[in-house]
Amino acid sequence: MNNIISSQCFICKKRSFIISIILFSALLVMGLGLIMSKTAGMFFSAFGMVAMIFAAAVTAGILTSGYTERIQMYEIMAGFRPSQIILGKTVVCVSLTLIFLAGTAVMCMIKGGGEQMLERLLLYWVIVLRSVLCIVFLSPLLKESTAAAMFDAMLIMACGNDPDALNRSPVSLFGYPQCFMMQYELTEGFAVKVIISAVIACTICYITGYITLKRKFDLEPHSLG
């Protein structure tokens, strides 16, 4: 697994400029939120969600480039096991995400406590990590379309701005809608829903990615000759 981590770090190093720009953009959005949002709920739901899209795009970008250029084939041909491949990439992508999460923590400290700030921050971390992990775990299945795992952001539009409708809808089980719902008052039920749905989503995505690699489902993105 160390070799997977080293090689992924090397790829990240080679793309460090674009990764830095996107991560900086994510933190910039949070910075703007710090200035512009009046409440902690608004800070996380509006600005936090946009920043989360940027943070997840870093992971999607790194993984997609490997599939576009087909170099991920070397991982299989070198005899790495599915769990080693998935977990190696997880370590690298989560490490990059932690830079962003650390930034959000600093901004929350600047904004100050109250309004369930700490609870909101922790739930926000859970949602961001869930988003990143699902992208990593689903990448063997989605390949060049890895960024498609971020499209649950679109689901918010399905329920509009009505918090009750959103809360009762299955859409509320997805990450981005949950982030959107943080603008409303936090309840214990919501926190439990966020944590449990994150665990279940990550488990399902991991199993999907693992089986894709284990059973060698359509590993070759190009048509077979």
Partner: peptide, 20 residues
């Protein structure tokens, strides 16, 4: 199978790291 966005040296370095 080569990464078109990397140089020849970087492609080899990637394989070196991957294969340990």
């Amino acid at each position: 199978i080569i990464a078109g966005s990397l140089s020849a040296r970087d492609n080899l370095e990637y394989v070196r790291l991957l294969r340990g």
